[in-house]
Amino acid sequence: MISYLSASYIYPVTGPVLKNGVIGIDPDGLIRTVLSAEEAKNQNIELVTFYEGLLVPGFVNTHCHLELSHLKGKVEQHTGLTDFVQTVMKLRGADDSAIELAMLRADVEMLENGIVAVGDISNQAISSGIKRGSPIYYHTFLEVMGFNPATAKASINRALEFKQKFEGFPLSIVPHAPYSVSAELFEELRLVAEELPGPVSIHNQETPDENAFFERKEGGFLKLYEFLGLDIGFYEPSGKTSLQTVLPMMSDRQKTLLVHNTMSSNADVVFAKALHPLLYWCLCPNANLYIENKLPDVDMLRATGVKITLGTDSLASNTGLSIFAEMLCLQDNFDIPVEELIQWATANGAEFLGISDRYGSFETGKRPGINLLDFEEVNGRIVLGREMRRLY
């Protein structure tokens, strides 16, 4: 039996916005038809459930750290990234059962917030059980780090061991960040990518200290390496920003997600676009405010035409796991059309994760999930309200 849903506006994402449009959906959430109001009338569609609001596809969260869910509320805000990293390293150890319970709650929270797919960062295998039992689609980014060139082989071997725990699930082995991966480890990752050619994720330019370290070997990362007991006497700065230093070390044949981009400049974006044809730029604005109390230059990113996705980051660096909350944060701080925010939150993320055949848009044959968003009309323009709920 097909159920018919209508709303003030339906956003198929891959097609025009439908005022008072109609979606036909079966009990399994499969989209059977998407109709304009006129088409529905001509087909004599009856028993339509109408909602005041915007119907949009389920959200895709392209950057999360499920493993850190037990740190909710335990890390002080506005400390800056290097202090944040040190605090997380001190606190992240906990009883496995406590970590698993926190991850389960986080998974349920994302589902209730209309998130249907997640790109999740893992540093170990503890999240595998939660992911196997979840209705959410997970792509695991198994993260490696090691700034000491001598540890490159060991870092890769450890990741390959953990990979077996995620057997049967989408997985990529990826670098953590420019400041935590040596050139030798980047080379090992390129070799692994030949066997695991899926999408890649890397944290990028979250703090001014990151560029300062690569350009001049200055800033807060020197203290971080001291905290880690790592002698970096071998390291010589490149004189370039972190992105311009490490992107040439990464394969340009893999879809690559640059996460955060808080300090990325127009020159960085121009450089990156010329070098790498498969880049996506992930924004996690609430986490940026939580850690650095600063937002990326979103207007500049939009002007350069890059593909933008959205992420929540972790509960160590955010008060909740809601893509809708990230959309509201961006709307509150920038002049971004609703259609664009919805594109970032749905289709772009699905495209990056390689799951557009099911998620990201309202099209016949897909099971993308359905969310209902509150809205207002301001000066003839639709803007997001403050409420949302998951319908399917």
Rank of each mutant, 00 (worst) to 15 (best):
V13Q: 08
P16D: 14
V22C: 02
V22G: 06
I23A: 05
I23R: 06
P27M: 09
L30W: 01
S36A: 03
I45V: 14
E46L: 11
E46H: 13
E46I: 07
V48N: 08
Y51N: 12
E52Q: 14
E52C: 06
G53Q: 09
G53V: 12
V56H: 02
N61C: 09
T62V: 13
L68Q: 13
G73K: 10
V75E: 01
Q77W: 00
V85C: 13
Q86P: 01
V88P: 10
S97Y: 09
S97V: 10
E100A: 13
L111P: 00
E112S: 13
S122V: 14
I126W: 02
I126A: 11
G129A: 12
K131Y: 05
R132G: 02
I136V: 14
Y137F: 15
V144L: 04
M145A: 03
M145V: 00
P149S: 02
K153I: 04
A154E: 14
S155V: 00
Q164Y: 02
E167R: 13
S172W: 11
V174T: 14
P178I: 00
L185W: 05
F186Y: 15
F186G: 03
F186P: 05
L189G: 08
R190D: 12
E195K: 15
E195S: 14
S201F: 04
S201E: 12
Q205P: 04
E210S: 11
E215D: 00
K217H: 05
K217W: 04
G219C: 03
G220D: 00
L222H: 08
G233Q: 07
L243F: 03
T245I: 05
L247K: 09
Q254M: 04
T256P: 11
N261T: 01
N261D: 10
W281M: 08
D297M: 04
G305K: 03
K307F: 00
S314T: 10
S314L: 10
S314R: 10
L315A: 10
L315V: 09
G320E: 15
E326R: 04
L330R: 07
L330A: 03
D332V: 00
D332Y: 07
E339P: 00
N348M: 03
G349R: 12
A350C: 12
D357M: 01
K366E: 07
I370A: 09
L373S: 04
E376Q: 14
N379V: 00
G380I: 03
R381N: 04
I382N: 04
M388I: 01
R389K: 15
L391Q: 07
